[in-house]
Design a protein around this nucleic acid. Sequence first.
DNA 1: GTGAAAGCGCTAACAC
DNA 2: GTGTTAGCGCTTTCAC
Lengths: 334, 334
Amino acid sequence: MRHVAALAGVGVKTVSRVINGEPNVSAATIEKVNAAARKLDYQPDLHAGNLRRADGRTRTLGLLVGSVDNPFAGAVHRAVEDAAADRGVAVFASSLDDDPAREQEAVAAFLRRRVDGLILTTVSESQAYLAPELRRGTPVVFVDREPAGLTSDSVVSDNADGAALATRHLLEHGHRRLAYLGDRAGIQTARERRRGFLEELGRAGVATRDLPVVEGLHDEATAREATLALFAGDQPPTAIFSSQNLVTIGVIRALRELGRHHDTALVGFDDVPLGDLLDPGITVVAQHPQEIGRLAAERVFARLDGDEAPALRTVVPTTLIVRGSGELPPKAER
Amino acid sequence: MRHVAALAGVGVKTVSRVINGEPNVSAATIEKVNAAARKLDYQPDLHAGNLRRADGRTRTLGLLVGSVDNPFAGAVHRAVEDAAADRGVAVFASSLDDDPAREQEAVAAFLRRRVDGLILTTVSESQAYLAPELRRGTPVVFVDREPAGLTSDSVVSDNADGAALATRHLLEHGHRRLAYLGDRAGIQTARERRRGFLEELGRAGVATRDLPVVEGLHDEATAREATLALFAGDQPPTAIFSSQNLVTIGVIRALRELGRHHDTALVGFDDVPLGDLLDPGITVVAQHPQEIGRLAAERVFARLDGDEAPALRTVVPTTLIVRGSGELPPKAER
DNA sequence: GTGAAAGCGCTAACAC
DNA sequence: GTGTTAGCGCTTTCAC
């Protein structure tokens, strides 16, 4: 900046004014400064400016998702990015991998870089460690999962409702031997989905005691194996509710291997890529990750713009998408 | 930091030493400082430190991909993140959307934030604008597409070879009426893939004059329409080579609608999610985005670690994955 | 083993 | 309209 000022024959403050589009600079001076900046390939240092700037904004957001490689996370990320780009805000993205240590490291990395706001998917038992940061005024919005030990904005799917919707759908198609295949019970959304599943069965008067409730599945491989094991038993289910996109894919693979994909009903929670092109089409309770990301970004920016309202919990409804796999009737008992 | 120093009863420099794990501090002092830092929820400001620090490293990378919502980009991103996280480096991720303006803005946003390195997918005609930055010592690695008007490291798939491989596969299965459905010719990889397609046909002695070469497709919708149009003509192809994952999906949808998915061969460039579970399975020339991301990160960090070798062009081979759609024989002429 | 002073690139406050 | 000075939070240099 000093070099630009020298080359343009003005003071550094004038360069600063031009760079930031502040008023009270003559057109001729603006042109001189811009010419000098161009000649020197000058790029202002945002961080240096922020050190002194009144609002202290870095125009940077930290986003933590399950994995940047997951379609759900990709859609959330994209929506956040679009909202941020409109405001000249850049986005740090990190993957959580359902690892509490990674959560803490990622958040610390964001905070050391003085992000203006945080959009987080979390997995550790408590997010109380964020309290000081929240007091400091950094907006924190939780996506997909709600925080524990701390109150802040969140944007989540209606997990229990969606799971109940899926379950009711299977019940309506005559199934009574349903199986639940889901993620670790340590994960809040997994608990909610299991609760929705069991409660809906309870409302329908179906005894849940003997129904298989398999937890701890987190990827295709474990879900596939769990499904195979289920069918190796003497009372395989006639319908499966899978609580997560990767689990759903694992179930599909297993059912195909067993040749049971046309006689075992399946409803998945969260949409599956190309789910409509499979045979049968995969009936899912779809979430709306794009909408979740959009609303989360909206919350962060509202807070940055001075919204002081109490923490807001935004629930994004899920949608049942009927495609075939959820409408298969129970296989006749042998 | 001043507050921490005051509370611990030491000078700021001592706090700095403790934070950065520098030697020559007594164990007792370290403990005092850490206790004070914890009490005050002190988070060091990385940017402030970098202003003065000798190496000037922000421990931050800028990554520009097609769209963070695309599976290819997600895999690249994930690999870059994993390599970066090992080194305590955070990653800014932005979407290009094949928009030259967005490219420039994203890069400028990265540079204003003083990223240590850049991993870029580009679309503008020339990246010469990066020359000053490159001279300044910022490593720039191009992924997926090679730069123009500038020489720097790149990590790309063997686009022409992969396209030729796909084409040869279709020829070997007896097809002569092949169609090419691809992205805008303005995109370097699209040009390469078209070249590979046409050259392979030339080597096989197949006249390419009358074969449909449709370009300018960039999403499912346009690819679907182009495919439908192809079959509305009087000489529909017996085989299709689609040059990109979204285009492949659009083609699949159109073929299904037409009921032609079992008599029109299809090989796609770049893998398609669940491509093995469709009927027929989708034969593709798979790229290795994870590997591309890993190698790109490796390049950036090698440069940061002082590698001064001439610009390196790394080619990641593609792999033909046979699943059914590419092995369909030509439909008997009517 | 520790601290004081200067300065990184910029903006705030105020002078002219 | 424009420049000067101080200082943001930290690291460097150098003294003790």
